[in-house]
Amino acid sequence: MEKAIVMNTQKFSLHDGGGIRTLIFLKGCALHCPWCANPESQKREIEVMRKQSLCIQCSAPSCQACNQSSAFCPTGAMAEIGEWMDVDQVVRIATKDAIFYEATSGGVTFSGGEPMEWAAFLREAIPKLKAEGIHVAVETCGAGPLEAYEALEQEVDLWLFDLKIADDQEAQRVLGASFEALFSRLVLLREAQAKVVVRIPLIPGYTATKANLIQIADRVRSLHIEEIHLLPFHQYGEGKYQALGREYALEGVNPMGKEEVESFRGIFEERGFRVQIGG
């Protein structure tokens, strides 16, 4: 049976696919977006996070300075992020709330990291969920292997496809991948007539420029995709960088104001997209 590093599972998620959903976050991502709100999802390995807010200073003046193991930590301030789970373990968690999925047209969403980097795992897990009648969504940025998309294009009910920076060179520099390469997965899915919603994070100084968004809009339009979700920048990830002991490129940047978000919405509506703000 396949295994994957599961970063976290989140029940009662109201985003990322509709209805009440369970989100399964798989750890590891080929991209290194500087704004990533889940930096603990990037490395394909189990790592330790230190959350000062939970620390009761039982063994050291602060969580960062603590020499105890995460197994000792009484409150979970210092905790291992990620756990190897096999397909059946994940399926068991993912089917727990089936009664809620049914009542609200919800389901299960695989997210990450980049879940498509765990293609073999998904190929085993998703049919098991489908057999239980569960709606399955996958959130991807296109960074998984091409054959993985080919294998899953018919199995997945909804693809949440993130696009970020349309300029190829800029994408290489900032994200660590070519836009064309990422976009080719989207093309593949659309050719297979898979249901896709494109999602664009609005990040000041990176993605949230008129030129970038117009470029993305035009490329997506050519694929006859109808729905776009714009995800305004927020600072919920800030504390996590600290907890991981990492630098954060967007420290102190203000969350995006409503007006600015609305102006970006216009770009897409003018081009005939149905636009939703937030996931």
Binding site: L14, A103, T104, G106
Partner: peptide, 22 residues
């Protein structure tokens, strides 16, 4: 915030139905 808008009402209705079936 959980119950805002039409989506919020649908969610509550669904939550109540699940409660009933449980």
């Amino acid at each position: 915030a959980t119950l805002e808008g039409e989506a919020g009402i649908k969610r509550m209705v669904g939550y109540l139905k699940a409660y009933m079936r449980l």
